[in-house]
Every structure is written in structure tokens, then in C-alpha cells.
Write a protein that binds this DNA or RNA. Structure first.
Length: 416
RNA sequence: GUGGACGUAGCUCAGCUGGUAGAGCACCCGGUUGUGGUCCGGGAUGUCGCGGGUUCGAGCCCCGUCGUUCACCCCA
């Protein structure tokens, strides 16, 4: 009869009481600024045709080449659990013509994402993200607004010990010009095999290498920032100006690298100071070629993904989440069968009126039920027995003060 | 995928040079009839991650495996 215990799959993040309340709080903090800015919900599948990611995110990226959960479904279709959100949103926008109305199309989403990496502090195989996408607008003001929305979410949580890194990856011409010089520079560097292989795929990656000898050598490497075309440069100047107007401080980081191939122009990253190696709590940027790459019209886009798990970790590291226990309005303790039935009726009436009501079932000892009421943080407690039912009156006890007062059962809702 | 640390009750952990398991918190019951938070008394709980080996005997030693964790790679 004793079955073997089944554990959760490796590396997933799970939230259960009491911490789940903090998770919910953090997630809502990150979502609300998007809603307040007029973004609308898009709810998408967690699995997609594998080709969406190989084409959209880029075959050469680590995410696609070694971190995807890919499998064949029963119809022999290659399916992949989504490793990020933007590609799926673009697919849906193109498929359902969401780009046919007034632009920009402004969408937000939240949910689980999947990457088959080795788990680590703040890095899970299933993780939660909140994201937004603004599609079809080139105005630099939207870049700043998108960044501001992310920033507002982190501020709503109460985070202060983080910084915003921004840079511009420029347009195609900017990057092509820079790439030639960068490859020449790297060719003189005498790298080990694995590293030069990475450099061949995307030379920008070397800017991100944490090994001291590499990062030292890269100090003199040519920066993409100095190769920006005139239009890219102007756009970026505008973004910075709008950020200044918004009072959002940022660090210009020309060595910043993002892991997804589709980024162009403005890119940014929020980095938390107390988090250890996986310190990115959110990031995003422009992806002006993605729509066309996926078969849609050539529209630009900008968006972000924010890590709910990491934001929660950051909030705990900063100690900004108040230990707010669950609080119900009323806790009813029925004594006896008749009282149990009455309690069910009272509770459903009060709940219909929007009150949070719990009933202590199971015929526990009164003392135990009272302890349960205490633990739940209930504001009021009512003990319901035969005498209360016949009199139609209960003693309502306020848990914080211990004071009681008589209330007609029928007028409980107004008394609470 | 690579490397280090760890894996004992629900949680946090103790367990000396190998001799068949403990504390605190939490939980349950009680301290005279139906009112919590303090205090006192009592109680239940573990195949010591799993599998194998060494040994008269292993939670303590060895090997493997799974998991957790930290770092690299990479990223939210």
C-alpha cells in the first residue's frame, strides 16, 4: 500500500503557503504597471511548434541550441515548451491579425517558461515571467515607456538595490560594420577552442565573459556603441532623453550582451545587487526584424521579460516583503450537527456578500478551533451552538482585543 | 554539460574515535462543563535520500545513483 514518494521534477520553482502569498504579490506588482499603461492580456500556449523558436530566437543561441524542452507529440510534430515569451506573442499577432488595428499593439502576459539548464540560485527549469510587447511603433518614447513600466513594477515591490543597464545594438548596418572590426580584434586574442567557437557564433558574447583574463583582454575591444548609424544613434539619444524626463536613472553599458538573436537597437537589463550569479531580474529591448522573420509584415517591436522568481528572491534579500499572514473576516466554530448546517448557510450568505469566511469543520475541540482561528488571522470569531441558533444571536469576538459583542445572525454582514 | 559542498522527524538542525536515533519549533490531547495568543503536563512522528559494499555491527567508512545547493557556461 505504501507507494513510493514522487518528487517534483528537477529544478522547478514551486510556491505554496505561506510563501505563495509573496509570490502572488510580486507577480501582481509586475503586472499592474502594464495594465495601467493600457496593455491588454494575451494568454498563449506554453508549447509551440519548435520552428517558431529556432527561427525566431535564433539557432545559434544557447537557449535554442541546448536549453529547449523539445519532444514529438503523438502526431510526430516537433513541439517545444516555450523558453521565452516574445516569439509566441509574435506568432499569435501574425496568426490572428492583431497588427491590423491601430498601432502599436500593446500586450502583456505572464506564466511559466522552460529551459533545460542546470539549476542554480535563481535559475530554474520552469520559471515565471511577466512580459509586455509593443508592436508597430518606432518612436523612441515607447522604448522609454516600456523601460519605465518595468521599473515601476520593481519599485511597486519595494526594491531599491538594483540598477538599469542600457545600450543600443544599432541596426543591421551598424552591427555589420562593427562585426568586422571585432572579429579582427578577437582573432589576435589567442583563445581556447570552446571560447573561439563561441566567438565565431556571436563575437559579442566575449564581452560577457567573466573570466578575468578574457574580460581584461576585451577592455580594448571595439565597442558597437561607436559604430552606430546616424539614425540608430539619434534614436538612442532620444531614449536616454525620455528616461531623463521620467527621472529613471540608468547606466550606459556598451558591453552588455543579450542571449537572444532578435534584439536590435535599444536593449536593457535590470540587475539586482544582492542576488549572486543570476542577478538579472528583467531585460528586454527592440526586435525590429522579428515580425518579418516569422512571416508577418515588417513591423518593429519592443518588449521585456521580468523574472518573477528572481524578483521575489530580490525582495526577500532586501527584506521588503511584509510577513502578511492570510486574513479572513470571520471564523465560525460550529458545535454539533445542527450548528454545522447553520454555519454552512451563514458562511455562504456572507461570502456572497464578499466576506472571507472560514468554518472549522471536523468536530474539533473548541480550544483547537480557537487556535485555528488565531493562526488564520481571522478578525472575528463566532461560536455557534444550539443556544445561538434558538436565540438567533451570536457573540462576535474580536480576536485582536478579545472583546465580544452580541449580534443578530441576520445582521452579521453589516456588523463585520 | 563541467567543478565544489550537502542530503537525519512537517521545518531548522545535533549525533563524540562506526555499537541498531535526539533537541527546538510546529502538530495533537489535557490542565473540571462552550472561547485563542503565555505557562505547565502528556503524546504521535523517522525504512537517517536511494542502491550496493566493507564490518560481528554503519546515520557515521567506500562506490554508485538521485536530489539540493554554490560557481562556470548562459540567462529571467
Amino acid at each position: 500500500m505504501a507507494g513510493k514518494k514522487i518528487a517534483a521534477p528537477k529544478g522547478v520553482s514551486e510556491y505554496f503557503p505561506p510563501r505563495s502569498a509573496a509570490f502572488e504579490f510580486v507577480r501582481d506588482c509586475l503586472i499592474n504597471p502594464a495594465k495601467n499603461a493600457g496593455y491588454q492580456l494575451i494568454e498563449l500556449p506554453v508549447f509551440e511548434d519548435t520552428e517558431l523558436f529556432t527561427r525566431g530566437v535564433g539557432e545559434s543561441t544557447d537557449v535554442v541550441s541546448k536549453e529547449m524542452y523539445t519532444f514529438l507529440d503523438r502526431g510526430d510534430r516537433s513541439i517545444t515548451l516555450r523558453p521565452e515569451g516574445t516569439a509566441g506573442v509574435m506568432r499569435a499577432v501574425i496568426e490572428h491579425g492583431l497588427d491590423r488595428g491601430q498601432l502599436p499593439a500593446k500586450l502583456w502576459y505572464s506564466g511559466q517558461f522552460f529551459r533545460a539548464e542546470r539549476p542554480q540560485a535563481g535559475r530554474y527549469r520552469q520559471f515565471y515571467q511577466v512580459g509586455i510587447e509593443a508592436i508597430g511603433l518606432d518612436d523612441a518614447a515607447i522604448d522609454a515607456e516600456v523601460i519605465a513600466i518595468a521599473d515601476a513594477g520593481f519599485k511597486a515591490i519595494g526594491l531599491t538595490q538594483y540598477r538599469l543597464d542600457i545600450t543600443s545594438l544599432g541596426d543591421a548596418q551598424s552591427r555589420a560594420a562593427h562585426r568586422v572590426d571585432l572579429l579582427n580584434f578577437i582573432a589576435k586574442m589567442n583563445l581556447d577552442e570552446a571560447t573561439s567557437a563561441r566567438a565565431a557564433i556571436n563575437p559579442l558574447r566575449l564581452f560577457d565573459d567573466k573570466r578575468p583574463e578574457i574580460s581584461k583582454a576585451m577592455e580594448d575591444a571595439p565597442l558597437l556603441m561607436n559604430y552606430l548609424s546616424e539614425s540608430s544613434r539619434q534614436h538612442f539619444e532620444q531614449v536616454k532623453k525620455y528616461l531623463d524626463v521620467l527621472g529613471i536613472s540608468y547606466v550606459l553599458n556598451p558591453r552588455m550582451v543579450r542571449g537572444l538573436d532578435y534584439y536590435t537597437g535599444t536593449t536593457f537589463e535590470f540587475v539586482h545587487e544582492l542576488l549572486g550569479a543570476q542577478s538579472g531580474i528583467g531585460g528586454g529591448g527592440r526586435y525590429d526584424g522579428l515580425m518579418a522573420e516569422l512571416g508577418g509584415q515588417a513591423l518593429s517591436g519592443i518588449g521585456f521579460g521580468l523574472g518573477v522568481d528572481r524578483a521575489l528572491l530580490a525582495a526577500q534579500a532586501e527584506g521588503v516583503i511584509s510577513q502578511e499572514s492570510f486574513v479572513s473576516d470571520l471564523f465560525i466554530i460550529p458545535l454539533g450537527e445542527r450548528a454545522k448546517e447553520k454555519a454552512l448557510q451563514i458562511a455562504s450568505a456572507l461570502r456572497a456578500g464578499g466576506k472571507i469566511v472560514e468554518i472549522s469543520f471536523g468536530d474539533r475541540a473548541l480550544k483547537g478551533s480557537m487556535k485555528g482561528a488565531d493562526k488564520s488571522g481571522a478578525r472575528y470569531v463566532v461560536v455557534l451552538g444550539d443556544s445561538e441558533i434558538t436565540s438567533g444571536t451570536v457573540e462576535v469576538k474580536e480576536m485582536k482585543t478579545g472583546a465580544t459583542s452580541s449580534v443578530k445572525i441576520d445582521s452579521l454582514i453589516s456588523a463585520l
